[in-house]
C-alpha cells in the first residue's frame, strides 16, 4: 500500500472558484484542476514572498514536499496560460481549520459541534469519516 498523503494546511481557500480565459482563438474545453494546497504554496512563495523552508513549516509539510506542490502549481498555471485553459480549484489534500471532518463516501466536509456525539457523516450517515487536521 502506498503511503498516505499527509494533509497540507491551507490558511484560507482561494477566493474564487476558477479562472477563465477570454478572447480565446481556439477554444480548449479542457480545464486545469488547481488544488487548494497548490494555490496556498503559490501564494506563500510568490505573493507573501516566503522561502520554501518557512512556507513548508506553515503548511505542516516537509520542504521537499512543499517544493513539489509549488512546482506542480506553477506547471498547472503555465499549462492553463499557454493552452488557454480554464482553471478550476478543487479541495485536494488540504485541511483548513480545526474540527473539520471529511466523509470518505460522499466527500462532504463538515464540522462536528460539541453538542453532537455521533461520529457519522451528516449527509450520508456513513461512519467512514476522517479528521482533516491529523
Amino acid at each position: 500500500m502506498a503511503r498516505r498523503i499527509s494533509p497540507r494546511k491551507v490558511v484560507a481557500p482561494p477566493s474564487f472558484i476558477g479562472f477563465k480565459p477570454y478572447g480565446v482563438i481556439t477554444e480548449n474545453t479542457d480545464s486545469v484542476e488547481l488544488l487548494y494546497e497548490e494555490y496556498e504554496a503559490l501564494k506563500l512563495a510568490d505573493y507573501d514572498i516566503m522561502n520554501h523552508q518557512e512556507a513548508s513549516k506553515l503548511m505542516g509539510i516537509s520542504r521537499p514536499t512543499f517544493a513539489r506542490i509549488y512546482e506542480s502549481a506553477r506547471r498547472k498555471i503555465a499549462l492553463a496560460l499557454v493552452e488557454a485553459r480554464e482553471i478550476k480549484t478543487s479541495y485536494g489534500n488540504a485541511w483548513m481549520e480545526k474540527n473539520w471532518f471529511v466523509c470518505n463516501d460522499c466527500l462532504a466536509r463538515f464540522t462536528i459541534p460539541k453538542n453532537i456525539t455521533a461520529r457519522t457523516c451528516p449527509v450520508c450517515h456513513s461512519f467512514n469519516i476522517a479528521l482533516l487536521n491529523v
Binding site: 474540527n99 462532504a108 459541534p113
Partner: peptide, 11 residues
C-alpha cells in the same frame, strides 16, 4: 462555530 451549528460543505 460559536453557537454549535454544524456546517456541511458540499461541492
Amino acid at each position: 462555530e460559536k453557537f454549535d451549528v454544524q456546517m456541511v460543505i458540499l461541492q
